[in-house]
Design a binder for these strands. Structure first.
Lengths: 114, 114
DNA sequence: GCATTTTGCTAACTGTAGTTAGCATACTTG
DNA sequence: CAAGTATGCTAACTACAGTTAGCAAAATGC
C-alpha cells in the first residue's frame, strides 16, 4: 500500500495530465467520465473504482497498471519479482486431475503448516 | 475484460470458498466485510471495489491478483495462456525447504509422467 | 426430540461514487 | 473591446456500494 494512496493517486494523475499537456476536460472526455469528477479525483476528494481508473488510463494513454499502483490496488513489483501463490498454481494446473491437485495441496499444506 | 466479469467473479469466489471449505460468514469475518454483502457479490448482485476484493482475497488466503483477473480489473496475461510452470513455482516457494521442494516436485512428476 | 447454533439470505438503511447544471475566470478571436 | 470559447470548479442530485437487523432453514449437540 502507498502511504497515502488517495493523495498519491490524485497528484500522480495531475502530473501525468500536465506532462501530456491535456486539459482536465480533454482527459475526462477521452476517458468518458465527467470533468468535475476527474477534478475531484485529482484533488483527492473522491476514490474512484478500478473501472474509472481504467478509463482514465485510456484518456491519458498510459497503462492502467501504473495507475493501480498509485491507487493501492496493485503492489509495485519489487525488482520484477511476482509473488506467486503455489497453492493456486497447483489448483489451476491443467495437467493434473482433481484428485492429484488435492493430494499435492495436502502435501504442500502439511509442509507449510496450514 | 472477461466476457461477464461480475458473474465470473461471483462464481469464482464461491468456488474458492467451497474449495477452502469455509462458510460465507467465515470468509466475510476474515475479510472484515458483512456477510450479506459477500453473499450478494457471490450471486453477482453487487460489484465490489478493489479494496473489498483485496479483503476477500485475504479472507480466502488467495492472491488479490487472481481475483482482479476475474473481476476484469487486470488482464490475464496477454497472448492467451501463459503457462505457469508448477515445477518452477514449487522450486521458488520460500515457504518450503529444499527437501520439501524436491519431494513435492517428485510427486508432481509422478503424476504428470515426466 | 428439543434447544441452540450456524448458515445464507432479505429488506431497510447510510454513506459516497459519479453526474448534471451552471458559475467565475482566463483565454481567444473578429 | 465585446463576444465566444475554454478551463477548473461548486452544489445539488441520482445510483448504488456496503452495513445492520433480523428471518427461515439446516445443522449440531445434549
Amino acid at each position: 500500500m502507498s502511504p497515502n494512496p488517495v493523495t498519491d493517486l490524485g497528484t500522480y494523475l495531475k502530473e501525468q495530465r500536465q506532462q501530456a499537456q491535456l486539459s482536465l476536460r480533454q482527459v475526462a472526455d477521452r476517458a468518458g467520465i465527467s470533468n468535475p469528477y476527474l477534478s475531484q479525483i485529482e484533488r483527492g476528494l473522491k476514490r474512484p473504482s478500478a473501472e474509472i481508473l481504467q478509463a482514465i488510463a485510456k484518456g491519458l494513454a498510459i497503462s492502467a497498471e501504473q495507475i493501480y499502483v498509485h491507487a493501492g490496488i496493485l503492489e509495485a513489483a519489487p525488482d520484477g519479482e511476482v509473488v506467486i501463490d503455489t497453492r493456486q498454481v497447483i489448483k489451476n494446473d491443467p495437467r493434473l486431475t482433481d484428485k492429484q491437485r488435492k493430494a499435492l495441496i495436502d502435501v504442500y499444506d502439511s509442509y507449510v503448516g496450514d
